[in-house]
Design a protein around this nucleic acid. Structure first.
Ligand SMILES: [Mn+2]
Ligand SMILES: [Mn+2]
Ligand SMILES: [Zn+2]
Ligand SMILES: [Zn+2]
Lengths: 147, 147
DNA sequence: CTGAAAATGAAAGTCGTTTTCATTAACGTG
DNA sequence: CACGTTAATGAAAACGACTTTCATTTTCAG
């Protein structure tokens, strides 16, 4: 009942679809795309519409429980919000996202913003490349171009 | 003639359109989108096609003179490559991109990648928020929600 | 010059995202 | 509970940046 109450205070209603979508999102791996969540939700209730999943993902962001992540591959992913900001290592081959702690950097970024009179709303720290798993695979397949 | 030679060594040909597009790109503010460059090029030669501008921007990237920048607003921008990696402060209101030095951070990112056996190909360091100019405007317009 | 290969421009295609619209459901109120 | 207002839903269409296709033109090495 907690989520329902929370939503009410913000002027939103609870529905069976919404309940299912929210629960599925929080149970799945963070960083899901609309399609991925849609597929999962459909397994549990095949009548839920794509736009409903999309709208609820947006809603989850609006109420501050997730944020959109854009990695330049044309697909928006949704990342559960945690207290700790973090960075992402993004594998260009398997698309996996590995998170890493970023505390060391935050001071620097904050100061930089300040110096420029820039009001920060969010940060994005990303390393693109190839994950350990893919590096193995790739070096087996074809010499070792990557090491 | 320098660029023409350079292209030839890579198997590409020089054309009047290409020449115009390349020159326009390097004269404009970095971080242009296809549309922005297209508009500029059309001012100088209104018969150049959109796809030609697009293809040449891709080419500039392929030969290593620029890279794509994605900020999650659905528009790809093209950033001239410089020896120094840098971060971007991205104004959510006026879309301006302010660059900042990022040397302090690179060590940390390199080490982080290493620890995870991740092979880095590129980095993205971004601060999203509101630039000095927009902050002024906004606080005039409506109290000072932003300070 | 000539011919093979690359480049161009217009138009069409792609694909994830977003909006529209008619209908249904939620839920505070009486 | 019944009601009325308002939000939510699902299907389909619209959107828009990006990418490809294809017929034609241009480049440039030989
Ligand atoms: Mn994350
Ligand atoms: Mn830049
Ligand atoms: Zn991988
Ligand atoms: Zn601004």
């Amino acid at each position: 009942m907690a989520m329902k109450e929370f939503l009410r205070t913000k002027g939103f209603k609870m529905t069976p679809q919404r309940d299912l979508i929210f629960k599925s999102f929080f149970e799945m791996d963070r960083h899901v795309s609309v399609d991925e969540l849609y597929d999962r939700v459909r397994q549990l209730n095949s009548s839920v519409g794509y736009s409903t999943v999309w709208r609820n993902l947006k809603l989850i962001c609006k109420i501050g429980l997730a944020e959109e992540v854009n990695l330049g591959d044309g697909v928006t992913r949704y990342d559960r919000v945690t207290k700790v900001p973090h960075g992402h290592m993004y594998c260009l081959k398997c698309k996996e996202l590995i998170e890493f702690n970023v505390d060391h950097i935050m001071d620097f970024l904050t100061v930089t913003a300040n110096e420029n009179n820039f009001l920060p709303e969010g940060y994005k720290i990303e390393i693109q490349g190839y994950c350990a798993k893919c590096r193995e695979t790739m070096s087996e397949d074809n010499g070792d171009r990557l090491t």
